[in-house]
Amino acid sequence: MLEIKNLHASVEDKEILKGIDLKVNAGEVHAIMGPNGSGKSTLAEVIAGQEEFEVGEGNILLEGEDLEDLSPEERAHKGVFLSFQYPVEIPGVSVTNFMKTAINESRKAQGLEDMPANEMLKKIREKSEMLEIDRKFLSRSLNEGFSGGEKKRNEIFQMAMLEPKLAILDETDSGLDIDALRIVANGVNKLRSKDNAIIVITHYQRLLEYIVPDFVHVLYNGKIVKSGTKELALELEEKGYDWLKEEAAV
């Protein structure tokens, strides 16, 4: 599904990603952990095509296709989805209207007609029920006045609507209380399939109790310094990151 080879990225001449290699197959869930400032969010945004970052060496391949020359929206049309750590507000644009626009833009890119209204409505009903979202919520302006938990739930709702091949969840657990975390995690689990892949970025192992990863990677100082299975997350929870930093320094 996703293959990242020796990826380097920098912002204003400051190198943040210093050679990342990562392979994610369809049907897998990978967790990326690491201390603050290690480059986790940068990696997520670079995959999504944020042009603030200068990609130096390396490649990102999605189903074998190099994403380098594709704009963020083209990547989205190919099935890349990023659940933002800090979702932005768009006043006056309802969640429903935003989703309708997003879905139809992707369909347009694939040469399809707009989704018929009844189909759209059905989908909205289905997905909002799955995530236990009150439908009144969908007529509110996108993220405006949403609580932290509502914002994150709304991100996962969008993921459910857009049905991406590769979803990257950037600290989706931050700002969620335990009930909201469970709902969001259940939603993500329902969206897991053998045809898509999910990358979960998180500080804490807590989320991984609900969304159980196949692999865990530790990102430190722009590099993946350790990879393992879900047991690695537990080890990190217990020992912190310092031992890895020392290991990496050697």
Partner: peptide, 23 residues
């Protein structure tokens, strides 16, 4: 805001129209 829309598959032109109409 533009990047957020782009990431959802909405190009910049459409994104501006959306934001301005919302405003």
């Amino acid at each position: 805001q533009i990047f957020y829309c782009n990431q959802r598959g909405i190009d910049t032109e459409k994104a501006i129209a959306l934001i301005v109409n919302g405003f």
